[in-house]
Design a protein around this nucleic acid. Sequence first.
DNA 1: GAGCACTGC
Length: 845
Amino acid sequence: MSNQTERRVEDLLSRSKLSTNDSASSSNVSMRQSLPSTSSSVVEQPADIDKEKLSSQLRNLQNSRKMTPSARSMQSFREKLPAFNMREGFLKAVAANQVLVISGETGCGKTTQLPQFILEEEIDNLRGADCSIICTQPRRISAISVATRVASERGEELGETVGYQIRLESKRSAQTRLLFCTTGVLLRRLVQEPDLVGVSHLLVDEIHERGMNEDFLIIILRDLLPRRPDLRLVLMSATINAELFSKYFGDAPIMHIPGFTFPVTELFLEDVLEKTRYKIRSECDSSAGSSRKKRFSSVKSDPLSDLFEDIDIDKEYGNFSITTRQSLEAWSADKLDLSLVESTIEYICRYEAEGAILVFLTGWDEISKLLDKIKGNTFLGSSNRFLVLPLHGSMPTVNQREIFDRPPVDMRKIVLATNIAESSITIDDVVYVIDCGKAKETSYDALNKLACLLPSWISKASAHQRRGRAGRVQAGFCYRLYPKVIHDAMPQFQLPEILRTPLQELCLTIKSLQLGAVSSFLAKSPQPPDPLSVKNAIELLKTIGALNDMEELTSLGRHLCTLPLDPNLGKMLLMGSVFQCLDPVLTIAAALAYRNPFVLPIDRKEEADAVKRSFAGDSCSDHIALLKAFVAWKEAKCSGRERSFCWESFLSPMTLKMMDDMRNQFFDLLSDIGFVSKTRGVKAYNQYGSDLEMVCAVLCAGLYPNVVQCKRQGKRTAFYTKDVGKVDIHPSSVNAFVNQFPLPYLVYSEKVKTASIYVRDSTNISDYALLLFGGSLIPSKTGEGIEMLGGYLHFSAPKRTIELIQRLRGELDKLLERKIEEPGLDIFSEGKGVVAAAVELLHSH
DNA sequence: GAGCACTGC
């Protein structure tokens, strides 16, 4: 630090009123209850409405609508669904049992019919005014589409008695009696209203998927039921694990509804090879006589792959041709043979009847390589008879109509997809499914506090779901490119999400719902998470100051509970509002909380990378690139060039729109907890919004303890983190292949192990940013300098500088503490000197 | 020195 900077910082600090006013920060200020004032999720009942009158009105309306011609044709459609025959039995079971488990396969109509049966019954029995039925869905799209379907079956406009509510979007009214919402929306409602007062029936759909929200909801509900004896709970699951949920709810009765789908013929690898005569060539040169096991031993295998490599092919597959047996000998369970996929597609296209083909692959790279192969294929690539479409969550094709549309006659649609086509996107005209049997799956390594994203064998449940994608409109075929013995050894279902992800957000919510000690609450889960994962989450919450040493919520923690965000991102928002750079921080937090707006086009990825880098400029920051892209989008939108801008800049307009809406939601929530005033607007909290040093410092405050040390090694830089040591910058980052960084640290939003351990989005920051906005400062045991992150980071400087930094940091912490205790106080004007001193220091590197 | 499963408040 230069003498000049030091003097200016000292001067600014001494002029600050706050530094002479210690008593204020320690005063026992009464806590503001931080319950949001918005209650949009609660149905507002006119207080003095005559309930009897309303109930009979609802019945008359329902009866009259049944008589219209369109309702009659709807009714005859409904009567064909397998669920229809179960109507009376189902309603009786609901009346007689507090909890009921429904098992049913796709096509049985459980999602659209069961909630509707309850609604009809309640209205018929003149309980329409008192009933409030909620049906949760794991995904936004399904909440909307199911609600739309049910409303039309009832001959109503959406939003009358049937409505939906998802984040930032709802169609409902005071008349709404059946609400489809995402599980996340219901969980947020529970935070405000732990007993779900007014809800008469709750149906939780798709619980077999074992999503984190659904598992969490189920634990809460089991505790809630005794307090709400009048509440009826219906759990809807695929047949595969209905038993587990029944047991969890004290042997609740299970009712099975048969499904209806067209038959799908399945072929396994051995059958496919026999049929197509494709010859698999071994990757490595295997000398005759050497076992396959030996040949692959260098590759780290999984139990399922090992299992196959131990099999004596000639003995096990004696009925198959010699070429098939040779191919099975050469087949590798570890690496997908894309030529096999290609030749299977070609076989179907040459010899089988018409119908779209859906290929399940694991990721971007496989899709891209297979697409190239198909383009180069003499049969598939050289005519206009084939429409080949990549389908990946981050590809620009994901929202294009042609995925769903039927192609012109004489043209066959071939979709190369990831898991997205397993449940999120449904393509009706698929007749052939080709399944590679694997998917990229997250797991959580609690020992190294590391999220992993690695390809692994799917479960039998997933394999079944993928197969079912071929039988939606007619009888279909499923080509499984793995042997039957592997299929038979697959796990029944995937591990629940609660065992595969970091738990900090969940733990914070448990705290805010006052559900007792986090670990004892989570022990009640159908499959409890590893105690070490829970410990890691609690430790992180302590590190960022959301919990104290007693594991109690701090004031900061209480604020974070009200923000529907990862606690780190919530803290980033609060810091952005306190330190006057709210506008950029709203954008960055929205992007990190939702998804990256940059798309990954398959054929122009170099251009896409270049555009992203140009947004970043010389900031060495992916977060700043996001920010600049969003600002440029806003400008383009105002001047009516949104479409061309997004196309040229490789940005997703839908993601940007969602980010924009989320920014508004965050601002409203910050206003609810008193950090900002809605009437004053974002601009009133944005004095340093254009000061990138300050923005990056706030990023540091939010992302801490996600810190990387950059260490020069010759011409290159090596990167290290406390938890796992050496890491790499993800090649998609604007910081990838930067040899020399201007500043010594990076903060990152996500660290994932794939082929290597990668930091995905990062921002280069100075030691001053870390010292002022990072973790708490601890004097070095050696006497010289300061430490952070449990001694992992060490800062040395002259004593005088260290003291000055510590003093400034102390003032900043006090300022923040006061603001958190009393969000409404305008301490910014009071703390001007402290903030100005911090800004001075941040600019001095 | 080379890669990006999918949801949700």
